[in-house]
Nucleic acid binder design. Structure first.
Length: 263
DNA sequence: ATGACTTGGACACCAAGA
């Protein structure tokens, strides 16, 4: 089975590329982030016509996640238990559409768009940390219920866990994505018994900013990951970032990361 | 070339991204 994650930065702007990816890479399941649309705006037809089912979670032009599968799509869950809400200045707190899970081909696949954090002193940063903590607690509870669970927590984690995951640590001094609390929150998933399965299977980045020639200069970040339960981690055979997808007109700023899962 | 941001809303600027 071939499972992938990709922050597409608008599904309406990227639908052609997503459809082409599914076919070219022979994907069974694709978890996408930053769909940036309400459910009724999602372009379902090209995917259903190609034999896929689609589960979406979206509210407006911000955030939004979806799962596209041709190996079943059961037990769809929007949000996770105790998922923190975020209050924009002067507004009521809202649980944003950043998490979606479904069982596909016997694997509980999560499509996750971890909050950005914005600045270390910003309320969004505290929101990011509590969001990660509660997600980790939920993942722990799933593993506790069933140590043999097949779990894949895939998505845009918005954290560069190691210094080599950004092109220049000096550029990120005092910035989000590299701070110790964020990295601690990331590695807490390892402590909870999950394994980030892409780390040992490739080197390099998964994101390059649109600005300042970041891609041609290969000034990127590695922030897209897949945390898997023990029973699933042992089935992962390969993990590959598709750098080709960052090229040309109409590219997302992230590239897909594809996992090959043994039967 | 892999090339100097991109997206979507209500808009002709702005928020947000990382």
């Amino acid at each position: 089975m071939r499972i992938a994650t990709w922050n597409v930065n608008s599904i309406r702007a990227r639908q052609d590329r997503v459809s082409a990816l599914l076919e070219r890479e022979n994907l069974d399941v694709l978890a996408i982030q930053e769909t940036k649309c309400r459910p009724e705006q999602f372009p379902y037809e090209p995917f259903t016509a190609a034999g896929y089912e689609v589960a979406v979670h979206g509210a407006n032009q911000w955030n939004g996640v979806a799962i596209i599968s041709r190996v079943g799509l059961e037990d769809v869950q929007r949000d996770f238990p105790a998922q923190p809400a975020y209050a924009n200045p002067g507004k009521e707190p809202v649980v944003e559409p950043r998490a979606l899970s479904a069982t596909c081909g016997g694997v509980q696949v999560f499509s996750l768009y971890v909050p950005n954090g914005r600045e270390l002193s910003h309320p969004h940063y505290r929101y990011k940390l509590s969001w990660l903590e509660n997600l980790r607690k939920y993942a722990s509870s799933l593993l506790e219920e069933d140590p043999q669970a097949q779990l894949a927590l895939m998505g845009d984690w918005n954290i560069a866990p190691f210094d080599q995951d950004v092109w220049d640590m000096q550029v990120f001094a005092g910035a989000t994505h590299v701070s110790k609390p964020e990295r601690d929150a990331f590695f807490a998933f390892e402590a909870a018994g999950l394994t980030e399965v892409t780390r040992d299977l490739f080197d390099g980045y998964t994101f390059w900013d649109y600005k300042q020639l970041r891609f041609p200069r290969n000034e990127g970040m590695r922030i897209d990951f897949a945390y898997c339960s023990p029973a699933l981690a042992q089935r992962i055979q390969t993990a590959e970032p598709l750098r080709e997808e960052r090229k040309g007109k109409g590219a997302s700023d992230h590239v897909p990361v594809i996992l090959e899962v043994a039967p």
